[in-house]
Nucleic acid binder design. Structure first.
Lengths: 330, 330
DNA sequence: TTGAAAGCGCTAACAT
DNA sequence: ATGTTAGCGCTTTCAA
């Protein structure tokens, strides 16, 4: 009924608290007999150590904080899943916090991380995050902060990112190589640095290697908008033969208009996208995509965290390379 | 550099620790002047209270545990997002643990919850979970456990579920009302109770209200298998005019074979599914579905948790009603 | 091989 | 209005 503590066990067994503590951690000083007795009683009483007491005493915790704009997202959730999995394997737990793309909530979440004395934090900042100071505070406590995906652009710090520019370039290369004649490229919110990087990389490669190919660049802020934009193009006399989508969000919108107009892929229209890989496989033929893998990025981030914690690593900005995954859409 | 504690602040200000503690919580006993001084210094020193110390001292924590088979799932992640959001709004944090459908990991995760002295746990059990004892232990500490979605069938406890049977019946009703002539119904893994419930409900309603309509019942364990099964049916001479999908997993598989064969929805084939609502909207026309909303279920679960914590609620088994959302697929 | 004691940072009852 | 004290459950140094 009431909570079992070392004290209780020690009273029952007529031993001191410290003996119980040692026995439970299999300390070499303690006799085998005593250990057996203690272990047995602990088991029957269903003793579970109080993590708060341990953390307080040792000034350590076995918890990481993870801050992300939204959990429900095919990229973030696979990142989270990977980090959680590795955390468990290494005896850590994960405290998950959503910022909802609100910098204020983000700051509150950072405070929560500090209050809970997490051993490290993984964070994907919001597009509106300006103040990086609250993040830097963690350095005062030797608490590693690893930025992933959306990271502060003007600060050298621990980062683990996708090869944003490279991914767009791989897609552009593919389009050029396939000798496409007219290309529609739809990107996301112009404000996001990821959009800028991808747009710049894609457009400049096109200008360099294929200046004669007509390229239409558009921006959509939702699948719905991507649907409308692409539909407009598909219905124009000057129909593109290829669409490049910057993200799953764009892709799903474009695919709706393709279905509406009953266009054949890749005969009527070729598609190539940047994606985690889930959505491209929903369609027939499967969509060719440049992979940006959340799961892999999570593993990479966790590895970095461990190195940082072990003290055998300096600040690094890592990039997870992208690769083309062939579907039948181009 | 070193951590700021109440003690440090008290030393700087020449006041006692308890005065600082009270000032920081705006205790009425403390003079306005003192409060100002304390607040100011705390702010400049960037003081953050040690949650572990507070939890230890008060035998409370502001953390909930949430155990789920996998985070990456369009149902669970929206449930998690909802719970996290409400938790934050009420000053709680969420510790997320994946069981990976492994009962052993599930037990380990339960231990972690206890060690961290969480104030309550939300859990979706694995299909293989037999031992309910570890869950019941929490009752000894007055820690509410709320089962959601996949719940122990033979135990009366706090549950928050989708209307599994009802959802299948709503779909069946719709099919009958539309006077469909030949129906293929694809369900998931037979071992899962959710599959059994939906299958039983769907089939028995059909037998009762539409015994003359040919009904083919199949089971698929993956989108790929659903694709193959449906394709086989679509290519047979005795082609069904309607497909019922038990879940998004099934739906995405079926949709692939429909795309492969270039069938027209709803002319060539009508589709109805049970879904969270995300996938049905990816297609054109949008798929008609019976909604099983993870976000709403999360809100419901959180509300229950709060009531249980406040002590003004008894054990309840709640069911989140389903509703038909019309697309253009039937 | 075991025990005693101090202390992690905080709260709260009980002084003053 | 502020201070003193005890103690939450645990680890760890020092002593026996």
């Amino acid at each position: 009924m009431t909570t079992i503590t070392l004290k209780k066990i020690s009273q029952v067994l007529g031993l001191s608290i410290s003996t119980i503590s040692r026995a439970l951690k299999n300390h070499p000083d303690i006799s085998v007999k005593t250990k057996q007795k203690v272990l047995e009683l602990a088991k029957t009483l269903d003793y579970e150590p109080n993590a708060n007491a341990i953390n307080l005493r040792t000034s350590k915790s076995k918890v990481f904080g993870l801050i992300v704009p939204h959990i429900s997202n095919y990229f973030y959730d696979s990142f989270i899943a990977a980090v959680e999995e590795d955390s468990r394997l290494h005896g850590y737990s994960l405290m998950i916090l959503q910022s909802g793309d609100d910098p204020e909530i983000e700051v509150t979440n950072l405070k929560l991380c500090r209050q809970n004395r997490v051993m490290g934090v993984f964070v994907c900042i919001t597009p509106k995050t300006k103040e990086i100071d609250p993040f830097l505070r963690f350095a005062d406590f030797n608490t590693p902060v690893i930025f992933f995906d959306k990271v502060p652009s003007d600060l050298f710090c621990n980062k683990v990112c996708l090869a944003d520019a490279e991914a767009a370039m791989i897609a552009a290369e593919k389009i050029i190589q396939k000798k496409k004649k007219k290309v529609l490229a739809i990107f996301g919110d112009k404000e996001l640095s990821i959009t800028q990087k991808r747009t710049d990389a894609f457009v400049s490669l096109f200008h360099k290697k294929a200046e004669t190919i007509p390229l239409f660049v558009e921006h959509a802020h939702s699948p719905e908008e991507a649907r409308e934009i692409s539909k407009k193009y598909f219905q124009s006399k000057n129909k593109p033969d290829t669409v490049f989508c910057m993200s799953d969000e764009i892709l799903t919108g474009v695919m709706k208009s393709i279905q509406e107009l009953n266009l054949k892929i890749p005969e009527d229209i070729a598609i190539i996208t940047i994606s985690n890989g889930f959505f491209p496989k929903l369609y027939t033929p499967e969509i060719t995509y440049v992979e940006t893998n959340g799961h892999k990025l999570g593993k990479l981030a966790f590895g970095r965290m461990l190195s940082l914690l072990a003290g055998n690593s300096e600040t690094q900005e890592l990039v997870q390379e992208s690769a083309l995954v062939e579907g039948g859409s181009i």
